[in-house]
Amino acid sequence: MTIDTAQDPPAGPRRSIELDSEEALRLLGSVSFGRIVFTRHALPTVRPVNHVLDNGDIVIRTHEGAALTARAGQAGGQGVVVAYEADAIDPGTHVGWSVVVTGYAHLVTDSQELARYQALLNPWVHRTMDYAVRIRPDLIAGVRLIAGDESDGA
């Protein structure tokens, strides 16, 4: 959005309320789209992806040749450190929520698990997605953005 096309901000201030981990993961599981952040050539890289939440883990599908597939595959048993962000913020009122999860990403190598994720998670891009990456959350942070006059019980 440029200054020329910017909308007037909503009336009144917004407040942010921290979410506990359980609520943050519940909200993350309520949407299917987010952004994965990982390191590529020593720089942060962000990719929009769709996901499924499975027993507290975030799972995305990838393809051969994808930077994340290569990074997670090279990391061996350790995995690669990533961040995952998802949100639902109304563009008109600027209220909603945002969740950021940091953890280790691993390629899913078990063929039965991979088949299960391929059935559960349909890629939203037209590309063969033969791989899946599982993110195990270590740090979970979330905020709810509310109008300044709403109570904390929102």
Rank of each mutant, 00 (worst) to 15 (best):
D110R: 08
V82Q: 00
E23H: 14
I17W: 08
I60C: 06
G92W: 01
Y117S: 05
E113L: 11
A11H: 13
S16A: 13
A83Q: 08
F33Q: 13
V99R: 04
R47I: 07
A72M: 03
V31P: 01
S32N: 15
G77S: 13
V31D: 00
T93F: 01
S111C: 10
E64P: 11
D20Q: 06
L43R: 10
I89C: 02
Y84H: 06
R15L: 11
G65P: 04
G103L: 06
R14I: 10
R71T: 10
V80F: 06
S111K: 15
A83D: 04
V59I: 13
E23F: 09
V82L: 06
L43F: 13
V46D: 02
E23M: 13
R15I: 05
I36M: 00
V108H: 04
T69I: 03
V80P: 03
R116N: 12
A119S: 15
V101W: 00
T93A: 02
W97D: 01
A70G: 09
E113W: 07
H94P: 03
I17H: 10
H51L: 05
I17M: 12
H94E: 07
V37E: 07
R15F: 03
G96K: 00
T39A: 13
I36D: 03
L120G: 11
G76D: 08
W124G: 07
A105C: 10
Q112H: 14
A24V: 02
Q118D: 14
G73D: 07
Y104E: 13
I89R: 04
N50W: 00
E18G: 11
I89P: 05
R35P: 04
L28Q: 02
